[in-house]
Simulated assay, not measured.
Amino acid sequence: MSFLAGLAAAVLGNVVIGTGQCMQKYALNKLQRNWETMQQQGDLTESGSIGSRRNEAVAYGSTNYSSAIDMRSRSGSTTSRFGQAFSGARHGGMQTVASGPPARYTSKLWILGLLLNYMGEIFGNAVALSYLSAAVVAPIGIVSVLVNVILAEKFLNERITSNQRFGFLVIVAGVGCILLVAPRSTGASDATQFVSMVQTSGILGLFGLMYMIQAALIMLIRSGRQSLFLFVLVASIFGSMNVMVSKIMTMYLRLKMVFSAMPNPADLVVYGVSGAASSTSMLSLPQVLVGVVMAGSVIGQESFRQQALGKYPVMQFQPVFFATYNVVATLSGLLLFKELDGWFQALVFFAMFSVGIALILYGSRFLQKAKSVVLPSHIRLDKENLLKTQ
């Protein structure tokens, strides 16, 4: 019964997450379109005609677009080259045009999408983690991918081709391989097991290693070596840290209802069993540090996830993020909670897990063929041009 309850929470939570993520991407695209419309109006006011504006664009080193094929670029880029040619050139015009679209947090729709995303995480995945292994909950995230892509086709005009549908089937097969052999235990069913698990988890060492890896990856991104995988890897590591802390805290809260004297897991890690049991503070330093770690991980994950969504189409970002997040979160969970029972189960799991991830990555290759078209607002995107870009 507990397995079904956790499964239902994970599925419903990921439906909400997928909806929220698509809503955020829609809001970003809307901000971009509105800014380009304002820029178009400013250009017409200043130059009086589209033709003269194109001549100015050439003078400033911008591209003179002529067809939809020439205008293929990464989805969600915050400033088109066409717009950049004018952003710093107007000083005496009648209308002031911003150098880029408004910040995403100025959109109520984007904020609503963000809230839906974390409502799904808190009331869906976090609850599921108190009943199920992270190796089960993480792959169920395929539900958010499917919801996201279906909504992206309907509302974001990101067309799904037959090759991409095949890719989704391969990804679902990969998820099935993982779920088939994933351990279903929560890691602890009573207070004694929970205390032992927390004390022997080595969570401080694992988190320290993760922070060092994160620092190196962020330095690479800041140095200009940006790629989809780097953004995804940073967001996935932050996300897996949230999964680990959320699982421990939700297990603690669930068991606390039965074993009222059970010490806080943060105090257990720092003070040990005796020190945690004798602690009378309502809010100790270790508990404050856990809150800081969780807040930092949420902010870090959201920051790099949003940067990736702003640079790449949903169909490119989501499957790669899903595969990377599965690897990081599942392996971290297995290390912390020791959910595999013996070497044989570990061998079978990692063999099938490797096959599942390989299938997910293989299926993702078909989704990478999804291209978005970014057009200046004075050029219409008709059906013929859209077909040429595929």
Rank of each mutant, 00 (worst) to 15 (best):
D267T: 10
G187L: 08
N34F: 02
M241V: 14
S73L: 07
V127F: 02
L114M: 13
A152V: 06
L44A: 03
I160N: 01
S133T: 12
L255N: 02
Y325M: 13
H91K: 10
Y65N: 08
A308V: 13
T192L: 11
W110V: 08
L361S: 03
Y131C: 09
A27C: 14
S364E: 06
N14H: 04
Q368I: 03
I218A: 02
I171Q: 07
M244Y: 02
V288F: 07
M119I: 11
A266V: 07
M244D: 03
M94R: 11
P183D: 05
I140A: 10
A27D: 09
A8T: 15
G120E: 09
V245A: 10
S185Q: 03
V234W: 02
S279N: 07
I140H: 07
P263C: 15
S332K: 01
Y325R: 11
Q307R: 15
T63W: 06
G88N: 13
M1Q: 14
L255C: 08
L179H: 02
E302Q: 09
A188V: 06
V234C: 12
V245P: 00
S49V: 11
S279M: 12
K311C: 08
V373G: 00
G239D: 06
A126I: 05
P319R: 04
T79P: 02
I150C: 07
T186K: 04
Y252Q: 10
Y211W: 08
T280D: 13
Q164C: 05
E158C: 05
L253G: 02
S73N: 03
Y312P: 01
S52R: 15
E384A: 13
Y312M: 10
S130W: 02
L156C: 09
S99C: 05
G205H: 10
L230F: 08
F259N: 03
Q40H: 10
I69L: 15
V293D: 06
V170F: 01
Q199H: 07
L209R: 04
S130N: 03
T45P: 01
F321M: 13
M257F: 06
G93M: 04
A351M: 15
Q95G: 05
R184L: 06
I218K: 00
Q287V: 14
F350M: 12
Q41T: 09
M352E: 04
T192S: 14
S62I: 05
W343Q: 12
V288K: 13
A126F: 10
F353H: 09
Q164W: 04
G83I: 12
A370Q: 15
V15W: 00
R104C: 07
Y105D: 14
M244Q: 14
M244G: 10
S67V: 03
L44K: 02
D267H: 08
R90I: 12
V293C: 09
M352D: 01
G224R: 07
V288N: 04
G363M: 07
G48E: 01
G83D: 04
S133M: 11
L31C: 06
I50P: 03
I237S: 00
M294I: 12
L255R: 03
G76I: 14
F344V: 15
Q390M: 12
G291N: 01
F231S: 05
T280I: 15
G272L: 12
M38P: 00
Q41W: 09
L156Y: 01
D43W: 04
G42I: 10
F207L: 12
T78P: 00
G20R: 05
L220A: 15
N385I: 05
G296T: 05
R90C: 07
E302H: 13
M71T: 14
S77H: 11
I178D: 01
L115Q: 02
S67Y: 02
